[in-house]
Computed example of a mutant assay.
Amino acid sequence: MNRVVVSSWPFFVLLIVNTGMRTNTLKVIGGKRTVILGEDADLFCRLSEAEEFDQITWQKETRENSNKHNFFVIKPDGTTSNVNGLIGRVLFIGNTSDYLGSIRIRNVTLLDEGTYTCIFSISSGPIQTEMSLSVIVPPVMSVTGHVSPVGDNEVVLVTCIAAAAKPKAEVIWDTGALNKSLRWVTNSTQHANGTSTVLSQLIGLPTRTANQKQVQCVVNQSALEEERTLSYTIDIHYPPQIVNIKASPQAKYFLCVVDGNPRPNYIWSRDVQPWPGSSVRADGDTLHLLSLSSDLNGLYVCEASNLYGSTTGSLYIHITSEISPACWVLLFVILCLIVAAAIFLWSWYKYGKLPCSVASSPEQTSQDMIEVPIRQTEKTTGDEEAES
C-alpha cells in the first residue's frame, strides 16, 4: 500500500508541473496598427497554441471613451455580438477553428485611436494581449501669394499652409535663384483632436528681379506616400518702364513693347495732326497701317499705363511713293522713243534724209548736179530773149 502511494506521488507532482508549464507558454499574439484616417484597421489576435475557449472578448480604451470597456464578443461557433457602440463598423475577419480572433474596424476616425485588448476565455482563466491603434491624418495643403508693389521694406510674398495633420507636417521652401534674398518663418498650432496646422511664410524685398520667379513649398508627413511640392510664381507690381516700339518685317504694323505689372493699357495718338481716319487702326499695343500713303506721315505716340504709373514712346512715320515695275518699263520705253526721235531729227538736219533711206549711186548724184545748172541756164536764156 505504501509502495503504491509512494509511486503515485511523483506522478502527481509531474502532472502539476507539466500543466503549469503549458499554461505559461500559452499566450495571445497581437500587434499595433497605424492607419490613415478613413481607412479600415485590421487588428490581429490569435492564440499561440490550440486550446478550447469559451469566447473571445474585445475591449477598447480610446479618445471617445477613456474607460476600458467591452465592445465586441466572438463565440466558438463564429457568431458575434456588438456592445457599447461601433455597431456596423466592426467585422470579424478571423477563424475560430484556427483560434484566430482578428477584427476589422471600418472607416477609422480620430476617436477610434487608443488601446485595444483581445481576451481569450479558457478553462484556466482569461489570457489577453493589448495593442495600440494609431490614426494618422494627411495635411490639407495650400499656397497663397500676396501681391505687393515694388518697395524697400520686406513683406510676406507667399504663405504655405499644411493644415489639420497628424502628426505635424514638416514645411520647407525651395527658392531657387532667390535663395540668398528670401527667408521664411514657420509656426504651428496644436488642435484639440490631436492634429496640427503648420503655417510658413516666405519673406523678402518686393523687387522687379523677384517678379515672376517661381518658388516651391515642400511638405513632408508620414501620411503622405511622398513629399508634396506646391509651386507659386511671385507677383510683384510696378509701373510701366521704357517704351520700345518695334516694326514688323514689312512695316505694316508697329508693336509697343513695355515692361509693367500688371500688364499696361495702351493708347495710340497722333501728335499735332488729326488721326488719319480708316487708314490706321490701333489695337491695344499694336498700330496697324491699313494703307501706305504720304497721308500717314507724322509723329505717333504710344502711352502705356497701369495702376502704378504711365510712360510714353513715339514713332515717326514717313512714307514715300514707290515706282512699280510696270512704271519702270514704261519709263524705259519712253526714253527709247525719245532717243530714237533725236537720232531721226539729227539725221534729217544733217543729211536731208532719214538714216534708214537707201543711199544713191555716184552716177545719179552727178547727173542731178548737172541738171540743175542746165535748167537754170535755159531759164536765163529765155529771159534774155524776152528782154530782146
Rank of each mutant, 00 (worst) to 15 (best):
K75L: 15
P76C: 03
G78V: 08
T79P: 01
S81E: 15
N82D: 14
L86Q: 04
I87D: 09
G88M: 08
I93N: 03
I93C: 01
N95R: 12
L100G: 06
T109W: 06
D112C: 10
E113R: 04
T115Y: 14
Y116E: 02
T117C: 10
S123R: 14
S124P: 00
G125Y: 10
G125D: 08
T129C: 08
T129N: 14
E130H: 09
M131A: 15
M131K: 10
S134N: 15
V135C: 06
V135I: 13
M141Y: 02
M141D: 10
M141H: 04
S142E: 13
S142C: 07
H146K: 14
H146Y: 14
S148T: 11
G151S: 13
G151A: 13
D152H: 10
D152E: 14
V155W: 08
V156Y: 02
V156P: 00
V156F: 08
T159S: 13
T159D: 06
A165Y: 02
K166W: 01
K166Q: 13
P167W: 02
K168L: 07
K168V: 08
A169H: 00
E170I: 12
I172D: 11
I172A: 10
D174S: 12
T175Y: 01
G176Y: 04
A177C: 06
A177L: 10
L178V: 05
L178P: 01
K180E: 14
L182S: 00
R183N: 15
W184R: 05
N187Y: 09
S188C: 04
S188R: 05
H191N: 15
A192D: 10
N193C: 03
G194E: 05
G194I: 06
S200G: 05
L205C: 04
